[in-house]
Amino acid sequence: MTSTTSPGRSFEHELVLHAGPEALVDLMVPFVRDGAAAGDEILVVGEPAFVDAMLAAVPDVAGVRAVPQAGRERFPGRDLHRFQQVLTTLDATRSRVRVVNQMPAMSELQWQEWRRYEAAANYVLAPYRVLGTCAYDTERLDHTMLEDLSASHEHVLDGAGRRPSGRFADLDEHIGGYLDLPPHPIEATPPQLALHDPSAHAARRAVHELGTAAGLPPAAIQAAVLAVSETVTNGFRHGRVPVSVKVWTAGGRLTVTVSDSGQGPHPLVGLCAPPLDSPSGRGMWILHQLIADLHHRTDRHGYTVRFSVGLDSPLHS
């Protein structure tokens, strides 16, 4: 993984802070028009109502690629890979791409993964000729979120204008604490099932049986089975025994933790695809495109992966 500040970067990453969709449209109209005048490709991503408003505000700009997406359907691993796929297609034109990206509303728990997304974008999208904006409503941000965003974006744009982010140079160091997180509250409750040093086969069978008993959709069960197989295998291969699996079923959801006593992976695990010839790492990357509710944490006891699927899971199809 290369430094975010390497001279070979083509990707420019800009944080946009706004006070609601109307203010965001006002901020982005000059951005879109300047890009069109320069011959850039324009990509607008966000809630359907925002995308419609953005297009209506620039009727004189032709060829804008609109990607309306409800926030509840978006999650970091899928978003990052889809951006990469779109940019690979547009990159063939050799034009620069300008991206207006209205970020979805997110809970504090979801933020743990979205901040990793923002950091990982600097590595994954570095080769592409892109000026990408990530737009956040300031009413939904706290001080810690703003610190994370300032570290992962080169520039900041708001009503006062555009300015460099002085914290961007420290991103490689800043992400070091991204996995230092507390356990999820469910982990303080007795699990329905606990397995110690199980084989991947035993873990798959147990999760399949519990998911079926809970009445989960086949796609959700299949995702959970794949995830527990991959994480248990990783625990033995890359971590340190003992490896433990715990499972909870409540409220129409199946939640699984897989823990080992190792030091854990890189803080951006699962979001940066390994090279095609790499012998490992691709399984976790696939899981991050498949499962929305997937988290990593480390503490003095070791490393834990937690994932959850349910009736409402926005699983990749």
Rank of each mutant, 00 (worst) to 15 (best):
Met106His: 09
Leu27Val: 04
Leu87Ile: 07
Gly283Thr: 04
Ala200Ser: 09
Gly302Glu: 07
Arg78Gly: 04
Ala203Tyr: 00
Ala121His: 05
Asp170Ser: 12
Arg162Val: 13
His155Leu: 13
Val45Leu: 08
Gln69Glu: 09
Thr89Pro: 06
Tyr178Ile: 00
Arg129Pro: 08
Trp285Asp: 15
Ala135Trp: 01
Gly35Met: 04
Ser95Gly: 10
Leu294Trp: 09
Leu15Thr: 03
Ala224Leu: 02
Thr5Met: 08
Ala62Lys: 08
Pro7Tyr: 14
Met106Tyr: 09
Val51Ile: 09
Ser308Thr: 14
Ile286Met: 14
Thr233Glu: 09
Ala169Thr: 15
Leu146Ala: 06
Pro7Gln: 13
Leu80Glu: 09
Val245Ser: 08
Leu146Gln: 15
Pro21Phe: 05
Thr144Leu: 10
Glu22Thr: 14
Gln263Val: 13
Arg163Thr: 15
Ala121Pro: 05
Ser3Tyr: 00
Val228Lys: 01
Asp293Lys: 09
Gly63Thr: 06
Arg163Asp: 05
Ser3Leu: 10
His13Ala: 10
Leu131Lys: 06
Asp299Ala: 06
Gly166Pro: 00
Thr133Pro: 02
Ile42Ala: 02
Arg306Glu: 08
Val241Gly: 11
Thr257Tyr: 02
Leu90His: 00
Gly262Glu: 14
Pro279Val: 12
Val45Lys: 06
Thr249Leu: 12
Glu173Met: 03
Val29Met: 06
Val100Asn: 02
Phe75Val: 10
Thr233Trp: 04
Leu27Trp: 01
Tyr123Leu: 13
Asn101Cys: 11
Thr298Leu: 06
Gly281Arg: 01
Arg78Glu: 07
Leu43Arg: 03
Gly8Glu: 12
Asp158Thr: 11
Val29Thr: 12
His155Ser: 12
Ser150Leu: 07
Pro59Lys: 08
Val258Ser: 10
Gly159Trp: 00
His184Gly: 01
Ala169Gln: 10
Asp260Pro: 15
Ala56Ser: 14
Glu147Cys: 10
Pro183Asn: 13
Arg306His: 07
Ala160Gly: 08
Thr88Asp: 14
